[in-house]
Structure formats: structure tokens, C-alpha cells
């Protein structure tokens, strides 16, 4: 039950966004992928969830091949992706956004249970079930996006920059929630972040991407102690 990526290469037209990257993400752990703008973090996540097509390489989750599958198939194998920028549908209500996450689930009773659980994790969403998603604050939207992904009963959660555009206090709150979710729901999480410091603080492991290649990988603590990583990404 690990996410295994090996020799993955992805092109964006003529540009090589991810160049021969290999890593594994152990089950039940939170792995932060950090790196500068344009390091290929988003491309990596989008490829794992089926939105982008790779040039070559392998990526498996639970022996299921993630590459060359469609996003709608991948989500059925327990992989949920929260894409960049508060991925909710503003025209739909909070309730409908959550329902959408469970739309492929046959067992509607279980889905309803998931919803109760999510609204107890995010009580603010529970209070606003019938509002349109575009009436929510930035932080609430990010919670809704994560809530929607959780409705798909994921084992592996791919998060793309949940801190983007949020106030520092809200960011802290979101990061704490992500940490709690990982532990309480036994999730495996890949967290892509520009906010390297915040991400490494809550993560078990870290991967530093630079220009499409893995620069350093290790436990979050070792990365935070690494003088080079500190100088380049943590700023002290």
C-alpha cells in the first residue's frame, strides 16, 4: 500500500517538466513535495491523478497503474486530488459540492455517513450547506475542496497548494487539519507546497524538487536540518 513512482518523465509541449523522477510514499504518512515555482510540482500531481499524460515511467498505487488511466477511474481506486486554487464549483451549493465527491459511490448510506463525518470535521461547512460555494471565504472554500475529496473515500489524498492565497492564521489552521486528517483517517497524503516551512513542519517526509528533478529527499526533520535546504527553501 504505497505510492511508487519510478523513472517518471513528463513533457509540457517541448519543455521537460518532470525529468526521470523516482520516489515512494509510505502508507499512512504525510509527504511534502516542495520546490520553487516551476519545479514541476503541480505537473507531478496532475499526472498522478490522470489529468496530464506522462512521456514515460511508472506510478502505481495499491498495484493499480496510475498512468494512462482516466481521472474518473483513478478516483475509484481511492486516489483523490484537490487541484490548485480552492477547487470547488462556485455555482453549486456547499451540499452539492460535497455530493459531487461521492457521486460515483454506489452505497448512498455510506456516502451519507461520510458527509456527516466531514461536516463534523468542518463544522463551518455544516452550517452553510445550502449556500452557494462562491459565498464562502477563501479558507472555507479550501475546506470544502478537501471535504469534497474526502467524500470520495480516498486512501491517498493529493493536495496541491492548499495554502495558496490564504491568510497566515487560516493557513496554520488548514495545515493542522491536514495533519489531523492524516492521523485520524489513516490517510496517505502527498502535499505539494510553496510554503516549504509550513509543509515540512507537519510532514513525515519531504521531497525537494528542482527543475523537474529530485534534489533532496528524506524525513521532514532531516530536511529542515539540512543547511542547503534551509538556505534555499526555508530562508534561514
Amino acid at each position: 500500500m504505497t505510492l511508487t513512482v519510478s523513472e517518471l518523465t513528463i513533457h509540457h509541449g517541448a519543455i521537460c517538466a518532470i525529468n526521470n523522477v523516482s520516489f515512494t510514499v509510505p502508507k499512512g504518512q504525510l509527504t511534502a513535495v516542495i520546490g520553487a515555482n516551476g519545479a514541476g510540482k503541480t505537473t507531478l500531481l496532475r499526472t498522478l491523478s490522470g489529468l496530464n499524460k506522462p512521456t514515460h515511467g511508472h506510478a502505481t498505487w495499491n498495484d493499480h497503474n496510475l498512468l494512462h488511466s482516466k481521472p474518473e477511474t483513478i478516483v475509484r481506486h481511492g486516489v483523490s486530488h484537490v487541484s490548485e486554487g480552492k477547487a470547488v464549483i462556485p455555482e453549486l451549493s456547499v451540499h452539492e459540492n460535497l455530493e459531487l465527491g461521492a457521486i460515483w459511490r454506489k452505497n448512498k448510506k455510506e456516502a451519507a455517513e461520510s458527509k456527516d463525518r466531514i461536516t463534523s470535521i468542518f463544522p463551518r461547512l455544516g452550517e452553510r450547506l445550502n449556500q452557494r460555494a462562491d459565498t464562502l471565504s477563501g479558507g472555507e472554500r479550501q475546506m470544502l475542496a478537501i471535504g469534497r475529496a474526502l467524500m470520495s473515500k480516498p486512501q491517498l489524498l493529493l493536495l496541491d497548494e492548499p495554502s495558496l492565497g490564504l491568510a497566515p492564521l487560516v493557513i496554520e489552521q488548514i495545515f493542522q487539519t491536514i495533519r489531523d486528517l492524516t492521523t485520524s483517517m489513516g490517510l496517505t497524503v502527498v502535499l505539494v507546497e510553496q510554503n516549504a516551512m509550513g509543509a515540512l513542519k507537519i510532514a513525515d517526509n519531504g521531497i525537494v524538487l528542482n527543475l523537474g528533478k529530485v534534489a533532496v529527499a528524506g524525513t521532514a526533520q532531516s530536511l529542515m536540518a539540512d543547511p542547503q535546504v534551509r538556505a534555499a527553501y526555508l530562508g534561514y
Binding site: G50, S83, A87, I103
Partner: peptide
């Protein structure tokens, strides 16, 4: 895109 990620066969 969000529909697809939620499992809708768009």
C-alpha cells in the same frame, strides 16, 4: 476538471 476528479464520466 473538478467533475472528472470527482469521478464523473464527463
Amino acid at each position: 476538471e473538478i467533475a472528472r476528479l470527482s469521478g464523473v464520466k464527463v
